[in-house]
Amino acid sequence: MKTNASIAQTTFASVVLCLASVAHAAGPHGHTLEPRHGGMVVEAKDIDYELVASPKKVELYLRDHGKPVDVMQASAKLTLLSGDKKQEVELKPAGGKLQAEGSFQVGPGTRAVVVVTRPDKAPATARFSFK
């Protein structure tokens, strides 16, 4: 037979687990990291970075609390690591995003590191893994 104290402890533990799950799903700053362009999203320095990659084009979208970041004066260096192959790509502003066209190794197992430079901001690094 459970005592009132053990029931309270069990209830408290359940509530803590539920709250932890909600906090984890919402991301470190209380918002979800949802892709808006079909890519992968990570957060770094309070900015959401969404990488959309195909074998012929790579696009990087930046959002600050859900609002697009102006990237007209920004640039980025993308490094793709696939097996023992390394490819470095410069991303340039293109209609609200940073973009490059060419031939890219972006299959499962590929890792990507992007360093974004914006005026009056410290460079920011975002890391992605293709599944």
Rank of each mutant, 00 (worst) to 15 (best):
A5V: 13
I7A: 08
A8T: 08
T10H: 11
F12L: 05
V15R: 09
V16R: 09
L19I: 14
L19V: 14
V22G: 04
V22F: 10
A23V: 10
H24P: 00
H24D: 13
H24K: 12
H24A: 12
A25F: 12
A26D: 12
P28T: 13
H29P: 00
G30F: 06
H31F: 09
T32F: 06
P35K: 14
R36E: 12
R36Y: 11
H37F: 08
G39K: 07
G39R: 05
G39L: 03
V41T: 10
V41C: 08
E43L: 11
A44M: 04
A44D: 08
A44C: 07
K45P: 00
D46N: 13
I47R: 07
I47F: 13
Y49K: 04
E50H: 09
L51T: 00
V52G: 07
A53S: 13
S54K: 08
P55L: 02
K56V: 15
K56H: 15
K57T: 10
K57C: 08
K57F: 07
V58D: 10
V58S: 08
L60F: 06
L60E: 12
L60W: 06
Y61W: 10
Y61T: 02
L62D: 04
L62H: 05
R63T: 15
R63L: 15
D64R: 15
D64L: 15
H65L: 14
H65Y: 13
K67D: 09
V69Q: 02
D70C: 02
V71P: 00
V71I: 04
M72F: 05
M72N: 14
M72E: 14
Q73P: 00
Q73S: 08
A74S: 12
S75L: 02
S75M: 07
S75D: 08
S75G: 14
A76C: 06
A76H: 01
L78V: 04
L78T: 03
T79S: 04
T79P: 00
L80A: 01
L81F: 08
L81H: 07
L81C: 04
S82T: 08
G83L: 06
G83N: 03
D84Q: 13
K86P: 01
K86E: 09
K86W: 01
K86H: 05
K86M: 11
E88M: 12
V89I: 15
L91I: 04
K92D: 05
P93H: 02
P93F: 00
P93W: 02
G95R: 11
G95M: 12
K97G: 00
L98Y: 10
Q99Y: 09
Q99G: 02
A100S: 14
E101P: 04
